[in-house]
Amino acid sequence: MTAVQEQPKQLDETGDVVTPLLELANEKNKRRRGLLLALPAYIYIVLFFALPLIIVVVYSFATRTRTGGTDLSGWNIEAYEKLGEPIVRDILFRSLWLALITTVICLVVAYPFAYFLATRSPTVRNIMLVFVMIPFWSNFLVRNYAWRVLLGNDGPVSQLTEALGLGQTTILFTPTAVVLGLVYGFLPFMILPLYASIERLDWSLIEAGRDLGASGFQTFRKVTLPLSMPGIIAGCILVFVPSLGAYVTPEILGGAKTTLLGSYIVTQFLTARNWPVGASVSTVLMIVMLVAALTYFRSGGKNL
C-alpha cells in the first residue's frame, strides 16, 4: 500500500503531472463496461464459431475406421502425414499458386479502378459502387455457370476468337478458367477496401508531394501507396483467403484435372469418408489464413 504512495510523480513531455492511478482505475472501468456490452457477441462466437473449429481440429487427430467412420480414441498425426504425399502436396501448392495469381490480378485491376472511383463526384461514386455490388444480387452458383457458358467451346468468347481467325478458345476446364472465375467472383472484395482507404486519403498530402518536387509517379510511390496500404492488405486477405479454399468455382470451371483444396476436402468428407484427412487439410488451411490475418494486423492495418 505504502509503496504506491511513495511512487515518484511522473512527468509527461509537457511537464504536466500525470496521476497514473486515477487513469488506471478509469481504464479498468471502461474495459469492464465494454466487456458487458460485448458479451452476447462473445457467446455467439464461442458457440457457433469456435466450437466447430475445435471439433475440426480434434477430428484431424483421429483415425478413420475401416467402415469409413471416425475413431476418436486413438490420437495420432497420420492424417497430417498424408498431407506430405505428392498428390496432396500438389493440390496444396496448386491452390496456393492460383490463389496468389488471383490476388495479384485482382489488386492490379482493382487499384486503378478504386482510385478512379475515389476521385469522382459523390453521385458518380455511388452509382459506380452499386455497379460493383450488382453481381451479389444473383446467385454465386448461377454466375459461375454463366461463365461456363461464356467460356464453353461454342460460347461467345470462342465464337469471337474464331471470327477473328484465332481458332477455338479452349480455356474452359483449365486453371486459367478457374483464375478468371475467381477474379470475377472476388474482385469486389478487393475494390471495396481499396476504395475505402483511398477515399480517406488527405489529397493535400499528394499536393504537398508534388509541391516538394516529386513527380506524379514518385508521389504515388512515396505517399499514395503507403497510405493506402491498409486497404491493399485488407483486400489481398479478403481475396486470397476465400480463393485458397474456393470450392464452387474450381468445381464448375476447373474440370477434373485441376483439383483444388476445396474440392479435395469435400471429397475426403463425402466420397472417401476420410474425415480426419479432410479435417487436417482444413486445419492447415485455417493456420495459413490465421498467419495472413496476423500479418495484416501486425502491419498496422488495425483501422479496417
Binding site: S204, A208, D211, L212, A214, G216, K222
Partner: peptide, 19 residues
Amino acid sequence: PPNKRPVNTVFQNYALFPH
C-alpha cells in the same frame, strides 16, 4: 507542374506525411 517550379508551399493544415 508544381514539381518543376522553384517555389514551395506551407499548407494551411500543414499536410505533413503521417507515415
